[in-house]
């Protein structure tokens, strides 16, 4: 889309875009380019000599069983977070969309967790699931079910998934509710007059009409689970016990920060970049196709 009437100016438009363009070049293009370049380099053990090694970093990465395990963890984690956060939010949004008393108040009470940082969500969940000081953790242990997310890998994964999903429900709720409210009610009325039961109406009319929102949110949730949940994992489990909750972004951090392996860390960054680009590309294609439904 373009405007018909515009202003004349030679220098002014460049001055106006200069601040953002400068920041984008220095803090986006330059580092992103370096990440790609470093991924093909390798430093010796003392960090003195750097040599070009082609795709070796990538070959090493995918030959590393620990990296593949991290990949598997990430997929389990991302799938868990997305399913729980989307399912819960959709249920709440459908209920909040009804004409009931106090709907506005419910909405407010369901929206505020959007403001919670992932790391803070994790700390809140420590006080639920910690085996000694957490409400549920103590209750479970008291009932004879051994529960300690710092020792049991599966329990650790469950807790980080729940904490990460908990924080994301509000975001999804806001979008689902906006999506539901934009569905013309006459369509639903027509289905109701035809005698379709509420549940049937939901799955045959509402849910398909909501699919663009759902798909958009699915991509956003996957990106969230892949990258923004770093704080959840760092605050709750630090990737442990063992490597049970180590995701791709956490491993990239450990390799870059703790192991100081810039080549391997960059190779991992490049893999992550490809994941995001793929997700975004799929999203744009899908939305383009869906515009005229």
């Amino acid at each position: 889309m373009e405007r018909k009437t515009v202003f004349k100016g030679r220098l002014l438009p460049y001055l106006l875009v200069a601040p953002q363009l400068l920041i984008t070049i220095v803090f986006f293009f330059w580092p992103a380019g370096q990440a790609v370049w470093f991924a093909f380099l390798r430093q010796d053990a003392f960090g003195i000599r750097t040599s070009f090694v082609g795709l070796e970093n990538f070959q090493d990465l995918f030959a590393d069983p620990l990296y593949l395990e991290t990949l598997r963890n990430t997929l389990v984690f991302a799938a868990g977070v997305s399913c729980i956060a989307l399912g819960t939010a959709l249920l709440l949004a459908v209920m909040a969309d009804r004409q009931i008393r106090g709907a506005g108040l419910y909405r407010t009470l369901l929206v505020w967790p959007y403001a919670i940082a992932p790391a803070i969500a994790a700390v809140l969940w420590i006080f639920l699931f910690h085996p000694q000081i957490g409400m549920l953790g103590r209750a479970l242990n008291g009932a004879g079910i051994p529960f300690d997310y710092k020792l049991n890998g599966n329990q650790a994964m469950l807790v980080v998934i729940l904490a990460a999903a908990w924080k994301q429900v509000s975001y999804n709720f806001i979008f689902f509710l906006a999506g539901l409210q934009s569905i013309p009610k006459s369509v639903l009325e027509a289905a109701a007059i035809d005698g379709a039961r509420p549940a049937y109406r939901f799955w045959t009319v509402t849910f398909p009409l909501l699919s663009p929102t759902t798909f958009f949110l699915l991509v956003v949730n996957l990106v969230y689970a892949f990258f923004e949940t770093f704080g959840v994992i760092d605050a709750l489990t630090k990737g442990g016990p063992g490597r049970a909750t180590e995701t791709l972004i956490y491993r990239a951090y450990i390799d870059g920060r703790v192991n100081l392996d810039l080549g391997m860390s960059s190779a991992q960054s490049v893999v992550l970049m490809l994941v995001v680009i793929l997700l975004t590309a799929v999203q744009f294609r899908f939305i383009e196709r869906r515009v005229h439904y």
């Binding site: 803090f27 370096q34 990258f227 960059s266 960054s269």
Partner: peptide, 17 residues
């Protein structure tokens, strides 16, 4: 820039900074 969240290019960005 929408394509790459800051987490993905974190170390090179740190080096620039």
């Amino acid at each position: 820039t929408l394509m790459l969240p800051v987490e993905v290019r974190i170390f090179p960005t740190f080096k620039v900074v």
